[in-house]
């Protein structure tokens, strides 16, 4: 029997892997992938916890909504990355430090 804990563990692993990718990768695309992984970890949590809402299936609904939204944001993010690349000829987030003071 697959318990709720197992889902949560998978989701935590996903989140951590995503987090790790965000802070460590030199490539914006990979960072984006990391964000997606974290997002999916979160979505998995929602689906897993939706067993407590059997009437409305709110979890699944939100998961779907989030997936759609994630797709959209990914598209936007890729566009930004593309523009960043145009501007800086790199997509290494470490070397893009114009946000700094």
């Amino acid at each position: 029997m697959i318990s709720l804990t197992d889902f949560l563990v998978v989701s935590a692993v996903l989140f951590c892997v995503g987090l790790y990718m965000i802070v460590s990768k030199q490539n914006a695309i990979q960072v984006l992938i990391g964000i997606e992984l974290m997002l999916n970890g979160a979505i998995l949590n929602m689906v897993a916890f939706s067993k407590y809402d059997r009437i409305n299936n709110g979890g699944q609904m939100f998961a779907l909504f989030a997936i759609v939204l994630a797709a959209a944001t990914t598209a936007v993010a890729l566009a930004i990355i593309l523009n960043v690349y145009k501007q800086y000829k790199t997509i290494d987030p470490g070397s893009i430090n114009k946000l700094g003071d």
């Binding site: 987090l19 802070v23 460590s24 987030p93 700094g100």
Partner: peptide, 16 residues
Amino acid sequence: RRFQGGKVQYYIYSML
């Protein structure tokens, strides 16, 4: 100041 080097990943890291 070091935490505000303009590196987004740093922000996140420090947030973490």
